[in-house]
Nucleic acid binder design. Structure first.
Length: 219
DNA sequence: GCGACAG
DNA sequence: ATCTTGTCGC
């Protein structure tokens, strides 16, 4: 595990080094437990609260939730999000008793200028499968996916398919799905689709989105 | 030099 | 991310 308090320059170099270690493996069949993670900040922005929910895809229920505060040690810099958010998310993950089959992060995986978005970075450090499911684009080009739910178009960056722009709801802005660590793009899209209920974001992510801001004023 | 830019 | 009410639409 490397340290998080480094310069933006060093962070960028580290990303290039870590990116070589990202694996692309098929997920086991019959995925049942999917974790969703998110983060919120204290009013003064000096601390951040990481939160994780464990979602049972079979029962369609949240079965566990964890929270963890960490000092905010890095500014928001597009492309360096993990150095700001990963410590709090990892701290919350460590408190989890259950073992998720895969984690969905509210950010990009390899759909990143150096193929090392938050989802990829966290997956590598946990050595667990992770999926990036972001609400907007960081890099790459694409055309709009067809209107039908479940359909997608490739997200292409520097002549490489780095993700899928996926329609999760009719008539609603699509989401950006990409591989994190130890997953294939096809499996990543499959899991996200399987997790989508009646909203745009997959349920684990949405539940984490609801959980974390609710505890912003606690610790 | 000029845009683009996860959360 | 966060500050914030009403409002348009199914």
């Amino acid at each position: 595990m490397h340290r998080w308090s480094i310069s933006p320059r060093a962070a960028t170099r580290l990303q290039c080094r870590l990116a070589e270690r990202i694996r692309c493996d098929p997920l086991p069949t019959n995925i049942r437990f999917v974790a969703g993670a998110d983060l919120a900040f204290s009013a003064d922005g000096r601390r951040c609260l990481g939160g994780v929910v464990l979602y049972d895809l079979k029962e369609r229920l949240v079965i566990e939730q964890t929270l963890a505060w960490r000092p905010t040690r890095f500014p928001y810099v597009p492309g360096l999000l993990s150095f700001r958010e990963a410590p709090a998310v990892l701290a919350a993950v460590r408190k989890l008793k259950g073992i998720p089959d895969v984690f969905i992060l509210d950010a990009h995986g390899v759909a990143h200028p150096r193929r090392m978005g938050l989802a990829a970075h966290i997956g590598l450090l946990m050595d667990r499968p992770t999926i990036g499911c972001a609400k907007s684009r960081l890099c790459g080009r694409h055309v709009d996916p067809p209107a039908q739910v479940g359909r997608s178009t490739p997200l292409i960056d520097r002549n490489e398919i780095v993700g899928a722009v996926l329609r999760t709801r009719p008539g609603v802005k699509p989401v950006y799905v990409s591989r994190g660590h130890r997953v294939t793009l096809v499996d990543a899209v499959r899991v996200v689709i399987a997790c989508v209920g009646r909203y745009r974001l997959p349920e684990p992510t949405r539940q984490a989105h609801i959980l974390v801001p609710r505890h912003r004023h606690d610790g």
